[in-house]
Design a protein around this nucleic acid. Structure first.
Lengths: 226, 226
DNA sequence: ATAGCCGGGTGGTGA
DNA sequence: TCACCACCCGGCTAT
């Protein structure tokens, strides 16, 4: 039969009861990354209200990241009237942006259900996996293709970890020098001349790059080394 | 300016007007695979009603497949009250199944908006793509980018922006090499020997450090030079 | 890990 | 050279 692992804290959400009604076998456990687990799917369920607040607090991305690391496929179910929550917001734009980021960049598949009953129906359907209308059985991988463009982002993110350097300047620097290593090897004048970094910024950057690192006295690693 | 290609048949949907209101440049064409095109995104917009019927007729999967062939990323926007449509169905499970299949098997990213206005907001946000993605292992240190002043923290934060390098490793690397610049100048073997980095990790790091940066088509310098 | 807004710093341009 | 402005970075806020 259909076995679904449910986090203990989801007991009173109403969903497990519905799942039971629908004939699934519930296996309560204390999960720390997802609310429901069925096969390869790790499922996080959130009320519409909670969804919005966790979106802005950044909590959502944290959870999403952990779920997609722990399970092959990360699913997010938003339960309730999202539209109602949206009406309260002045800027829906940031909500869309965050949602887009979660789905496209973070590879979390996001679904919306009106109530616990439909959430249960959804989970059952997902767990059964009885779909595939015509296409070949493609292994459900949302997060596979962006490997290519990813490199550019990683490079940019490294360079923009420098103080005073944002995404924009990071791109400039990388374009000017050609690789991360070359950026970090550049001298003050090379930065000021080659890229459009000013003398002032270039100077402060070089000060940081060349500053000798003072190890803290209680270095846990040193004790490891001997 | 923001340019969005719109299929002629979408004219009377109300969305293009909203897009125009929001400051986008509309470019009408006769598309045969998508309704809207913005950058790498091919977007299909459907009313909730149409969505349900196309889901069951299989027409949706057809379109989905063609869009994801033609564009790098396939986006589906369902506009209107889906719940209302769902109430008409006796068996919602088949709807969930089809939706799951579209998202997980056909790699269509699916979003829901209440009205044309929000559809437009969504498309604008998507097209802007001004979302900046932090690296995979960005949120390492205690905060964000520490503000200048605490040199040691800054140094550690820079080094730990490298993928696979957390606070501990960062400290280790800095202690071994003495400065940020020296860390970034280190060769594979130096990393593997000097610090406690494994050969594999050192290799992948060096690959990223030396990877040539591919400038994007919209070179930031060009826009600046204008 | 969002978008928008604002303050402060920086670089480029034209006088 | 200097002043102005346009741009960018980074912090704050968000019903």
């Amino acid at each position: 039969m259909l076995r679904i692992v449910v986090d203990e804290r989801e007991k009173q959400s109403g969903v497990p009861d519905e799942l039971h009604d629908l004939g699934a076998t519930i296996d309560y456990r204390l999960l720390d990354v997802a609310d429901y687990v069925a096969g390869e799917y790790g499922i996080e369920r959130k009320s519409a209200r909670d969804f919005v607040s966790s979106l802005f607090s950044g909590r959502l991305f944290d959870q999403a990241h952990r779920i997609s690391e722990a399970y092959e496929t990360a699913i997010l179910i938003v339960e309730g009237d999202l539209e109602q929550q949206m009406r309260k917001l002045k800027n829906t734009r940031s909500l869309w942006g965050a949602l887009i980021s979660a789905v496209l960049d973070f590879h979390v598949s996001c679904f919306f259900t009106p109530d616990p009953r439909q959430t249960a129906e959804f989970i059952i359907t997902l767990a059964r996996g009885g779909r595939y209308k015509g296409g070949p059985r493609a292994p459900s991988l949302i997060g596979r293709k962006p490997k290519v463009g990813d490199l550019k982002r990683v490079q940019a993110s490294i360079v923009s970890s420098l103080p005073g350097i944002g995404p924009r300047m990071a791109e400039q620097l990388l374009a000017s020098f050609g690789s991360v290593r070359k950026v970090f090897a550049a001298s003050t004048t090379e930065m000021a001349v080659g890229a459009r970094i000013g003398k002032a910024r270039a100077l402060s950057l070089n000060r940081i790059l060349d500053a000798p690192y003072k190890a803290s006295k209680t270095t846990p690693l040193q004790s490891q080394l001997r």
